[in-house]
Design a protein around this nucleic acid. Sequence first.
DNA 1: ATCAAGATTACCT
DNA 2: GGTAATCTTGATA
Length: 198
Amino acid sequence: MKKLRRDFYKRGILLVAKDLLGKIFVKEENGLFLSGKIVEVEAYAGALDEASHTYGGISTRNNVMFREGGHLYVYFTYGAHYCCNVVTGEQGIGEGILIRGIEPVKGADTMAMNRFGKSEITEKEFRNLTSGPGKICKAFDITKKDNGVDITKNYIYILDNPPVDEKDIVTTKRIGITRAVDLPWRFYLKDNPFISRK
DNA sequence: ATCAAGATTACCT
DNA sequence: GGTAATCTTGATA
């Protein structure tokens, strides 16, 4: 499997969002190798999308989202949680994809340490490891220090994988937002146990 | 300087 | 199913 290149991320956001399903998110640090299959995402477009952080223009918080596709935008919310996004499109557009659900592939014991402080976990805790945006960042130890990382050339990247079958992709409205709630920009893999909510 | 809101999660009944 | 926890950012003064 090869790392996804800049061209992958610089296409239209909805296309990239769907194509990210089934790909392998990876973080290598201090000899640790953590990876997981992306099973749930949401698209946040720029000027046209009231729910996006970039609606209303560039700021110190969201400036990473205005870079060209292939960067990581990490933000802190509710005083407790980090969430990570993949920036897409050309520089200056301000759009990105929130990663909401991941199925652990490698390093599940390390993720368990990061999430629960122990490497031995129950079946129930395993399904709860990375089934949500805040949980993913906790499990992968992604914080504001990772904000702005170029994911085409660094320790965080995404590996290519064969496209998933179109009929296994479920499209719904986005979750946890108060504006532009009707846009059908959430995509997830049907029947996957690591979806944040039904 | 002060304040309200938030792309969530964990724990309660 | 409801809600407290917790802090950074951006708006208003």
